[in-house]
Design a protein around this nucleic acid. Structure first.
Lengths: 229, 229
DNA sequence: GATGAAGATTAGTCTAGACAAATAAAAAAG
DNA sequence: CTTTTTTATTTGTCTAGACTAATCTTCATC
């Protein structure tokens, strides 16, 4: 009896729908996965999911697993849009390092008014990607789908373009940045050792050796000679 | 047992210390004045003041009236600094109208990290005033004192420079803006009618007629021929 | 099909901050 | 001085959202 008009979700609700969006992979997301993602206890999740269901933002499935309704997804996309625009702003306008802006955007996304967000968006001339390469949903919540694969899955010898990079470890991201591993960079899989554990990747001409586990957050678009999976 | 380290006050506490700062006029501020200012009930104020006293941010006086301690004032100045820098940013960088940025700054002042605030401050090359002419405290909380008088008190015939303008009525501020009544503008009191109720003021050469009540938020610095009060 | 381990839910607390209603205390007015 | 009016405080609720401990389900495995 309060909401309705302004349609503004509480901060916590915004976090939940965004989490559902982030964790979506076709299947409903389990309570424990959400709890882990939001660093919150499972009972809190069960609890909040029940409210979100009552508010028609999520649909509940087997064992409490949840998935966004259309309305829920719309709300999630609004939050995602804000987040990405803010990250772009923090990097491009304020000159902050892209490896550390996530947490600031995480807070601001809930508190910046539409007026301010629009002004920021205008100032940057409506960017289409954030600094990590994520596409920014338009104001209607439309988000072009694109199919990316993890860099670690690139077959030896193949070239590709880096499209997205996200990692919660700031140091690692900085290292990648310095090595030229940023969205748009050309890469080539040079060699694979130890049953896929260690990779040699050529980044903008330079050789780079890494454990494949640490590369989880790097996604690429394979170049023409289309190797289907 | 939680605070201490980060020293971050809750949003509500920040609002209270800022209110105390805004309402300060030498005397302790009454419970009801704070309640009015924050649009909150008197019991809520009594309540919160008790906590703030326990936390040594305010000192309580006769009839519950409060005044900031040194530490409280320091915190208030931090909030004021943030607020003013943000207002300047919203106007100068994002191009928003100065008559409407107050509420955005009011929210953001509580959520922008030091890192982001510093970046914004740097981007603007450390402005000394916000768009309404208020001085911005430096990072150590130092704020030059300046003595201003209400425009309505300017004697007939005298000239002055507008220094500060604040008014919660956005339309009115826009009107003033269009008329050239902005910080830095030269004014001259042309005539006073109806026992001070109606004023004729010359703003940048143009004549302007207003009720004195509506001019409450305009403060000036009188020019040389020093008319003491 | 019984059982132990995961995972989810219930029940009951806690926190910050606000509120209204009732009461108390001070100032102002007679 | 007493009464009225204004202000402040006490008491008891409410809300959102989180938590822990205890319990209940479901799945996987013998």
């Amino acid at each position: 009896m309060k909401r309705a008009a302004a349609s503004a979700l509480t901060r916590s609700r915004q976090d939940y729908v965004k989490a559902l969006f982030d964790l979506d992979s076709g299947e409903p997301v389990s309570v424990s996965a959400i709890a882990r993602h939001l660093e919150v206890s499972p009972p809190s999740v069960t609890n909040m999911l029940a409210r979100l269901e009552a508010e028609k933002l999520v649909a509940l499935h087997h064992r409490g697993a949840a998935r966004l309704t259309h309305e829920g997804e719309r709300e999630a996309l609004r939050v995602v849009r804000r987040h990405r625009i803010l990250e772009a702003f923090l990097v491009r306008v304020l000159g902050l390092d892209s490896s550390v802006v996530h947490e600031d955007a995480e807070v601001l996304e809930h508190h910046v008014s539409d007026r301010v967000l629009d002004a920021i968006d205008r100032l940057m001339e409506h960017p289409s990607e954030d600094p990590h390469g994520h596409l920014i949903p338009d104001r209607f919540g439309r988000l072009p789908r694109r199919v990316l694969i993890p860099l670690a899955d690139l077959p030896v010898g193949r070239r590709a373009v880096v499209r997205e990079i996200h990692d919660r470890n700031a140091r690692r991201m900085q290292r990648w940045q310095r090595a030229g591993l940023i969205p748009g960079a050309q890469v080539r899989m040079h060699a694979v050792h130890d049953d896929g554990e260690v990779l040699e990747v050529e980044v903008q001409g330079q050789r780079m050796v890494t454990g494949s586990g640490t590369l989880e957050g790097v996604f690429i678009e394979a170049l023409n000679p289309g190797a289907r999976k």
